[in-house]
Amino acid sequence: MNTSQIWQELDRQVTAGRIPGYVAAVRRAGIGEVHASGRLSFDAGAPAMLCDTPFRITSVGKPLGAALTLALIEDGVLGLHDEICRWLPEFAEPAVLREVTGPLSDTGPADRPITVFHLLAMTAGWGVLLQDCPLQSAIDEREIGSGPAPPQMTGDEFVRRLAELPLAFQPGAGWLYDTPVKVLSVLLARAAGMQLGDVLAQRLTQPLGMADTGFWADADRLPAPYRPVGDGVEDIELPDGAFVRPPLFEDLSCGLVSTAPDLLRFFSAMADGGAPVLHPESVRLMTTDQLTVDQRMQGLPILGLGVSWGLGVAVDVEAVSPWMAPGRWGWTGGSGTSAHVHPDGSVAVFLSQRELADAQDGFDDFWAAVSVG
């Protein structure tokens, strides 16, 4: 496996000052390689990146959350089409907006219950609206929207505040991003009867040997977070204690910390059929397109061209870019992270600390190099 071209491309990003450093991993034909370069921050004398440097992986945690859910389904703890009000009675009778941009008082009853499937498929009726409207304003006022860290409250409080608001559409009728996995995080803990971190460890990270994956890490090991501004970057101010101590809300949608070797283990296990975490049938279900054409169009600003959604993961349906292929799956995190599995079984993981400028920003040069390297 010749990965020198891949690392050279990423090193150019460091030399150009776009990122202070990175860790990446590639597996082809069953052989994996992890490479680290640069430093933890732009500060002079900052520690060097190491292959086991932990990163805030933000939305790259969603595939892990999906696999954990499907593992608990295999165990009989819950069912894919179970109503979520079994564990989240707060959502027993949700109201639904008649128009997504309309007043919060103009609602009707839900015509079907919200299910676990709706949470994984992002079709529950909650999510990032990408437009100014009363519902988005109410989400912002309650501090339960999406961001670089989990909401600063317990999962129970998050659910309580969310339940005060109507759905944007009838369950199963549309597609909106992110919030359903926050709800799922609370549901899994309640269904299992223990802290979500313990469930994650017992059913996913320990069986796969992912010792550096969890909801927090030592502060001196974490890279400094940045966001792009103009031609440069600026520091990101995270909530006090975020990612460096046990959180109030263990949130699988954006709250996990992991390393390139750990993520390579996870995605490689899924690429090889799921053992020892999942059966192959569950992996196939997770990585199969679950959206209608209309839902995919609604998700276009987040998903991008040629991409649909399975259960907790994005799925390529067209080869719009040279590195894409129908059936390729994975996802990207807003903190500058990405991981995908190609239909040929190859796996690639990229971890940086430069937040994406928007949903279609990213490190295309990395994926182009992976596709030919």
Results as ranks from 00 to 15, higher is better:
M1G: 10
S4W: 12
I6G: 08
W7V: 07
G17C: 06
R18H: 11
V23K: 12
A25W: 00
A25S: 12
R28V: 01
A29G: 07
G32I: 02
S37Y: 02
L40S: 01
S41K: 05
F42N: 02
F42C: 00
F42E: 00
A44M: 03
A46T: 10
A48I: 00
A48V: 10
L50P: 05
L50A: 15
P54L: 05
R56T: 06
K62W: 09
P63C: 03
P63R: 09
G65F: 00
A66D: 09
T69K: 06
I73Y: 08
I73V: 12
L78M: 09
W87H: 15
E90I: 11
P94K: 15
L97M: 13
E99Y: 13
V100W: 06
V100H: 11
L104I: 05
S105Q: 10
P109K: 11
H118M: 03
A124E: 09
G125C: 01
G127P: 04
V128C: 08
C133Y: 00
L135Y: 01
Q136M: 14
A138N: 11
I139R: 13
R142P: 01
R142L: 13
G145E: 01
S146T: 06
A149G: 02
D156P: 06
F158W: 01
A163K: 01
E164R: 13
A168P: 08
A168C: 03
Q170K: 02
Q170R: 04
G172W: 04
W175F: 13
K182E: 00
A192Q: 12
L196N: 02
V199M: 01
L200N: 10
R203N: 08
Q206I: 09
Q206P: 08
P207D: 05
A211M: 15
A211Y: 11
D212N: 12
D220G: 13
P228V: 09
G232W: 07
I236K: 00
F243K: 01
R245W: 01
P246F: 05
P247H: 14
G255M: 06
S258W: 06
A260W: 08
P261T: 08
L263C: 07
L264Q: 13
R265I: 04
P280T: 15
E281P: 05
S282W: 14
L285K: 14
T287V: 14
T287D: 08
T292C: 09
Q295M: 07
M297F: 09
G299Y: 10
P301T: 06
G304C: 13
V307Y: 08
V307S: 15
W309S: 12
W309Q: 08
G312E: 04
G312F: 10
V313D: 13
A314I: 04
E318S: 10
A319C: 15
S321I: 12
P322R: 15
M324K: 15
P326Q: 13
R328D: 15
R328L: 14
W329F: 04
G330C: 02
G333D: 04
G334S: 05
T337G: 04
S338Y: 04
V341W: 05
P343M: 07
S346V: 07
L351K: 07
S352M: 07
E355W: 03
D358Q: 09
A359I: 07
Q360N: 09
G362M: 13
F363N: 10
W367E: 02
S371G: 13
G373N: 02
G373K: 12
G373W: 11
